[in-house]
Amino acid sequence: MPGAAGPPMSLEGVDHALRRRMEERDRVAGDMLDLDDHPSHRLLKGMTPTGETARRWDQAQVTLVRLWWLFDAYRRVLDLAQEARAAGRPDLGLLTALLTGPSVELKPDDVPIEKRSLLREKGEWITLDLALAGMDGAYREVAELIGAVDAAWNTLLPALDAADAARRGAREAATSLGAPDPELDRLDDTAARLRARVTTDPLGSAGLLGELEALGRAAGARRAELDQALRVREEFDGRARRLAERIDAVAEAEREALRVRDLVLTKIQSPSLPQMPDQAPTLRDRLAALDTRAGRWLELAERLTSLERGVEEALAHATRTTESVAGLIGRRDELRGRLSAYQAKAVRLGHAEDLALAGLYGAARDLLWTAPCDLRRATVAVAEYQRAITRIGAAG
């Protein structure tokens, strides 16, 4: 039975307190129903958690039972108060006791251990305010757990879903290629293991985010490789034809490098020449070795891409070699032009008949117009002629 309260409240005070408690009851009921209907709460109730999540969920379920029991006891007191108020002559003492006194009975097992007595046989009584405080603490404890689970899933599941999407795309590509893919099988096994951990123990899986993101990157990379293999299968004939044409261009560029080398050997004395490129035959062999009959398109994609890269590198190398070798003739021609320019300067300075200058000019000209040309000596000779004219110009 409810315990004693203070002096009886006035009827107006009873009505005010009862109205406030009813509004309070409706708000608490709404919050508890929202908690019960929370998506993560529904998921927890429909699954078997493991690990840290299981440990905390077991505690939360005990707290939930206590929360609903307290609410039911709280509601029953208010129902009694409503009935007492509806009587023809309300008992203000009873109403005061119900609304302000210890009117909510706790089961013996619900009494905190530090307040229990070995002699008790009945439950203990608490006020509506203490019942509300108990419900609030229980609600917060459960809500905190559900919020933590929800936050963990919101962090982990998108990364897992992204990895799953990439794996599905990769699996479709692998199926189209018609070949087993052990690497993709390994990624599937990893995804299954991680999904089991994340879905059943979100609170114990916070450290898995990096592994989930790595799985997503690996799945995305595998999908890209398999998609490339599909493109290679579709484009192989055209790319092979273009490769053959580019290899012909490499061969022509290498022949041009040889032609320029032979020309340099007749024009320049003891030139320092790079090794001549000769990649076209090897590139043709690699192209011929791309056999599509085995259907190993993933391997063919890598080899085809590597060959395309190799062809472009060989073409660039042949072009650079030709330019490097031809630069020796360009150097000779540059020296010829410089010699002619300084001869014209000597004429402008009035030293066209200077025998010393004429001797220097003749020595440089003989070197530059003799085949093969000794570039080293010619460079020295032109420099001597240039210095002589510079000294004359400086002397005025």
Score class of each variant (00 low, 15 high):
Ser40Arg: 03
Thr319Leu: 13
Asp31Val: 14
Thr155His: 11
Gly88Phe: 12
Leu80Val: 05
Arg186Leu: 11
Leu119Phe: 11
Thr322Tyr: 03
Tyr139Met: 08
Arg56Val: 01
Gly204Trp: 01
Ser176Gln: 14
Arg387Cys: 09
Thr319Val: 14
Leu177Pro: 06
Ser306His: 10
Arg309Thr: 15
Leu95Thr: 03
Ala341Thr: 06
Arg168Asp: 07
Leu44Thr: 01
Glu353Cys: 06
Gly310Ala: 15
Thr370Trp: 11
Arg377Lys: 13
Arg377Phe: 03
Ala224Gln: 09
Ala326Val: 09
His317Met: 08
Gly350Val: 04
Ala192Asn: 07
Leu98Thr: 04
Arg19Ser: 14
Val77Met: 07
Val198Ile: 10
Leu298Trp: 04
Ala394Ser: 08
Arg332Phe: 09
Asp58Glu: 14
Asp150Gly: 03
Ala17Pro: 02
Ala131Ile: 04
Thr53Leu: 09
Ser205Gln: 03
Phe71Met: 10
Thr321Met: 09
Lys267Asp: 11
Leu156Asp: 00
Asp285Leu: 15
Ala371Ile: 08
Ala219His: 02
Pro281Arg: 09
Pro39Tyr: 03
Glu312Gln: 12
Asp185Phe: 07
Gln275Glu: 14
Asp374Met: 09
Asp366Thr: 15
Ile113Phe: 12
Asp278Leu: 13
Ala240Thr: 02
Val62His: 14
Thr127His: 05
Ala163Cys: 11
Asp366Cys: 12
Leu230Gln: 01
Ser40Val: 05
Pro8Ser: 12
Leu273Met: 03
Glu141Met: 11
Gln279Ala: 15
Leu360Thr: 03
Ala192Lys: 08
Ala4Ser: 15
Gly396Thr: 02
Ala294Tyr: 03
Gly359Ser: 11
Val14Phe: 06
Asp374Gly: 10
Ala159Asn: 00
Gly30Val: 02
Gly220Thr: 02
Asp58Val: 15
Ala163Glu: 00
Glu302Phe: 14
Ala81Gln: 00
Pro158Glu: 00
Ala316Ile: 00
Asn154Cys: 14
Lys45Tyr: 10
Thr190Trp: 10
Glu144Arg: 15
Trp369Asp: 11
Glu172Val: 09
Val149Asn: 02
Ala288Val: 12
Val149Arg: 00
Gln275Gly: 15
Arg286Lys: 13
Asp333Val: 06
Ala289His: 08
Glu353Val: 13
Ala244Tyr: 01
Arg242Gly: 13
Ala352Glu: 04
Gly393Met: 07
Ala218Gln: 01
Leu335Pro: 01
Asp36Gly: 12
Ala5Val: 01
Leu265Ala: 10
Leu160Phe: 02
Asp72Ser: 10
Val250Cys: 12
Leu355Trp: 13
Ala152His: 01
Leu315Arg: 06
Ala356Trp: 04
